[in-house]
């Protein structure tokens, strides 16, 4: 069971959270203007990164807020958690 640092509540066990998939996939502002390829990509295509992965979590059984996390999917170690709307931090990436 992972230990997840909610940016609002601090470290809490995974049981309190739900996972929200890949982060930073913004819903298009005007979906009607989006072509079939881009709409399909928005709905379905995912990076599925092996390594650093920006993802969304929700502290469902706590403060109920969504937030983002940067996690290494090869170790499950969290490098950072941050509020929604903030850009992905540059951590642990080869410079």
């Amino acid at each position: 069971m992972l230990l997840i640092a909610c940016p609002y509540c601090g470290p809490r066990p995974e049981l309190e959270f739900s996972h929200g998939g890949e982060a930073h996939i913004a819903r298009p502002e005007a979906p009607a203007d989006v072509g079939a390829d881009d709409w399909g990509a928005y709905l379905y295509l995912r990076a599925n990164a092996r390594g650093l992965h920006a993802e969304r979590w929700r502290h469902t059984h706590g403060c109920a807020r969504f937030f983002n996390a940067l996690r290494d999917t090869t170790t499950d170690k969290f490098l950072a958690t941050y509020e929604c709307g903030q850009p992905r931090p540059h951590l642990g990436e080869p410079s």
Partner: peptide, 8 residues
């Protein structure tokens, strides 16, 4: 519930 390549 989360994606992972750890096989754990």
């Amino acid at each position: 519930i989360y994606t992972s390549y750890t096989q754990r």
